[in-house]
Design a protein around this nucleic acid. Structure first.
Lengths: 352, 352
DNA sequence: CTGAAAGCGCTAACAT
DNA sequence: ATGTTAGCGCTTTCAG
């Protein structure tokens, strides 16, 4: 032992509620009540206590009150890819809302399946560190969600809907319909689709629903649906480019592309350019999101306000935690077609 | 009163350390020691306790241990713009490292000056909710940092260096030098600069240092430095576009552009395209970052690994918290010139 | 090697 | 309107 410092981590001598009580000549209970604005405190007492607390720069220790109340005043947000555009925006929305309500936002990466496991079965103990959790766009099965719920954690998801918890997002069927209809109205009949994950049977519902909308629009227009005209873009820029290559390599290439995210659309645009394919002269491209970059490259897209989704999800969660208002099981935000420069009529049909 | 539920927030009956102690027939102290791997526990006892804890699915309540130890096992990361590319990436790095170390990462938006105030003077009490904090690229004065330090919070910054706390980032002078030198080597002599904030005399050092590097490179090549050949791009896509417009509107436009971030470069590229200016035929553009989008648009850039910066910063912070190793005051990560398609020789000089 | 007991700083009955 | 007194669930001396 060469150190004199006994405590492993010397606690700073902060001023406690007792200091304030002593200085104000009242009991700690009164200080607690006064500072939290509870009733049954003489107004004069309240003011005196407040003044002294202020003067002593007293800050209640959140840990102590967490232990005493059982509430942590913080929420977790579980994110598959923290630096993805979509996720970063949701987190921004969540944080803003939580901060306003005095809640801490703790981010939780859940990219690997081990991390998912930890979350579901609370191996990491996150359930005791937060009052609730926002699940972003993650594909949890009902079984898993049930397990989560069984742990008594309050949950709200953003993205796909769920029967078990409130969720906020958009009507993805509508997204697919709007995008496709726009292309159809321009005269396109062969429309390629760049969707998300390659093989996600049940896991990831968003692409499936957008595809559904796509098909509805086609049917409504009496257009044959060629299911082979679909490639996975993995929701990434590079994936979008590869998907476009595959689609244009066909003997019967599409004249228009519905990419399920702007980032995939960017990749497609870049690929088209590198292949010497003129957009929108020879090929139309529409995306989904309205990424900041979209206005720059003139991408036609279906806009959604992702930050707002995060904020609303947080709001719902906080309302629940406050035991509050009747909360809708689903909040569907509106989307909006934004026509820019990457969509136009199909190239003149060759005869033959 | 229609509710029977007395407690405002019914605490779930979770299994506590006492349950484990009782089931194992030992004292809580022993359980605590056993589970945390402390010495002085008979191996047989340790195993029995572990087995029972496992069986009871016991998870120590972090709040209680926080109160007892004074350590929160969580760190904050203060972010000006949570959904910005740079920031999202740093946060991703921080989160990954912290998660691995068993620390929670709480994100803290500090876009408004009120939020900055709250952070500096701990009006919000964040200092008691975390053990340390990662400050991203924020322009805090030494005075402010000192105030922070006075509150006893462990701090590490990513981006600009500081004499008061460890910091991790890149050599921004070098960044400016590398970018500019690349342009000079291609033959450019009139180089426009798109930098960050419009008027940040002392606040934001990064642009200043990159500009410094730019000037060094010019001097080394014997090129006159035209300080008027610089426009603010505000580190945003749209800002980059506007800056380019301003630069090209001059009577003596530059033949090359050094944009201090890829996003500003994207905006510049889009603006160039819309103005019918060929890149790199008539204008070369180089950025900084190596954004995912850069490879797509073929942007020449100076790459930095931002995720890694976040991870390293977190590592440093955690080391400090562990009272650990000698920690360097500054970690400078390397950068790398990535030549793509947006830079080339200047257009043939007109005579006259 | 193990147990008893005193906190950590605050909140929440229950008195007064 | 205010004070007293138990806890909240864990860690950590200090004894044994």
């Amino acid at each position: 032992m060469t150190q004199h410092d006994a405590a492993p981590h010397r606690r700073r001598d902060r001023t406690t509620i007792e200091d304030v009580a002593a200085a104000a000549g009242v009991s700690v209970a009164t200080v607690s009540r006064a500072l939290r604005g509870l009733p049954n405190v003489a107004i004069s007492t309240r003011e005196r206590v407040a003044a002294i607390a202020e003067q002593l720069a007293y800050r209640p220790d959140p840990t102590a009150s967490r232990l005493a109340t059982g509430r942590t005043l913080s929420v977790a947000v579980a994110v598959p890819v923290l630096n993805g555009w979509y996720f970063a925006n949701v987190v921004a929305g969540v944080e803003a809302m939580c901060a306003e309500a005095g809640y801490d936002t703790v981010v939780l990466g859940v990219s690997s399946s081990e991390q998912r496991e930890r979350l579901i079965h609370d191996t990491g103990g996150i359930h005791r560190r937060v009052d609730g959790i926002v699940l972003i766009d993650v594909a949890y099965s009902d079984q898993e969600l049930r397990t989560l719920a069984a742990h008594g954690l309050d949950v709200v998801t953003v993205g796909p809907r769920s029967e078990l918890f409130p969720s906020v997002g958009i009507d993805d069927v509508e997204v697919g319909r709007i995008a496709t209809q726009h292309l159809i109205e321009l005269g396109h009949e062969r429309i390629g689709v760049i969707d998300g994950q390659p093989h996600d049977p049940l896991e990831f519902v968003v692409p499936r629903r957008r595809a559904e909308g796509h098909q509805l629009a086609c049917q409504a227009a009496g257009i044959d649906i060629d299911r082979s005209l679909r490639e996975s873009g993995n929701f990434s820029i590079s994936g979008g480019g590869e998907a476009l290559h595959a689609l244009l390599a066909r003997s019967d290439p599409p004249t228009a592309i519905f990419a399920m995210s702007d980032e995939m659309a960017f990749g497609a645009l870049a690929a088209a350019r590198s292949m010497g394919v003129d957009v929108p002269g020879e090929l139309s491209v529409i995306g989904v999101d309205d990424h900041e970059m979209s206005v720059v490259v003139g991408l036609t897209t279906v806009r959604q306000d992702v930050i707002d989704h995060g904020a609303r999800a947080a709001r719902v969660l906080l309302d629940r935690l406050d035991g509050g208002a009747r909360i809708p099981l689903r909040i569907d935000d509106t989307v909006e077609l934004v026509v820019r420069d990457t969509t136009g009529p199909p190239p003149a049909r060759r005869t033959g």
